[in-house]
Amino acid sequence: MSREFEIRPAVADDASAISALILSLQPYLTIEPDGSGAEEFLASLSPDIIRRNLQDENYCYRLAFDGEALAGVVAVRSNSHLFSLYVGSPWHGQGVGRRLWELARDGALARGNPGNFTVNSSTFAEAMYRHLGFTATGPLAEMHGIRFIPMRLDL
């Protein structure tokens, strides 16, 4: 990574910033560019839902900051499912996603994960996940206005 990013655990007060970052990436995530058909998925990205997740011990979130700007977010659910890995467009290709993934992976391993992870990758992020070692476990799927590839990593 060419820059230093501050990475820290997320707290409930970060919910609005996390929501805004992920929603800024909506055209990469939904089948229709305007998000039509993906209302249920987009609603799951509201600050209230994210705040609830942040307060649930089943989720572990970390954030990357470039100065005051939120550059990326990672969340692992149930210590094995990569629930969220989003990097804001200005920081794509700068290693933020890899760094967040490595911290999330190492944290899950330290909490007892035996080395097995799953993710539902957007088609946009598939190449990155393959680069990180994930492999597809099924065909391209469509649900709630999004397309995704179920993937798995066994260390």
Rank of each mutant, 00 (worst) to 15 (best):
M1E: 07
R3W: 06
R3F: 15
I7F: 01
P9H: 14
A10D: 01
A10P: 02
V11T: 15
A12F: 10
A12C: 10
A15C: 03
A17R: 11
A17Y: 00
A20P: 00
L21H: 13
L21Q: 03
S24W: 12
S24P: 02
L25W: 14
Q26S: 08
Q26P: 04
P27Y: 10
Y28R: 13
I31M: 13
E32A: 12
E32N: 09
P33Q: 12
S36F: 08
L42H: 15
A43C: 03
A43L: 06
L45P: 00
P47T: 09
P47V: 06
D48P: 00
I50H: 02
I50E: 00
R51I: 03
R51S: 09
R52C: 15
N58F: 07
Y59R: 06
Y59L: 07
Y59F: 08
C60N: 05
C60W: 01
L63P: 03
A64K: 07
D66P: 10
G67V: 13
G67D: 13
E68D: 11
A69L: 09
A71R: 11
A71F: 09
V74F: 04
A75R: 06
S78H: 14
N79V: 02
S80L: 03
L82H: 00
L82R: 06
L82A: 02
F83K: 03
V87M: 14
G88W: 13
W91M: 08
G93E: 13
G93T: 04
Q94L: 03
V96W: 08
G97S: 12
R99T: 05
W101V: 06
W101D: 01
L103C: 15
G107Y: 04
A108I: 01
A110C: 00
R111S: 08
P114V: 02
F117S: 03
F117G: 01
V119Q: 04
N120F: 11
S122F: 12
S122M: 11
S122C: 10
T123F: 08
F124R: 10
F124K: 06
E126V: 10
M128G: 02
Y129Q: 06
R130K: 04
T135I: 13
T135E: 08
A136W: 02
A136G: 10
T137K: 12
L140I: 05
A141D: 05
H144R: 12
H144Y: 14
H144N: 12
R147Q: 15
I149F: 11
R152S: 15
L153R: 15
D154I: 06
D154R: 06
L155D: 11
L155S: 05
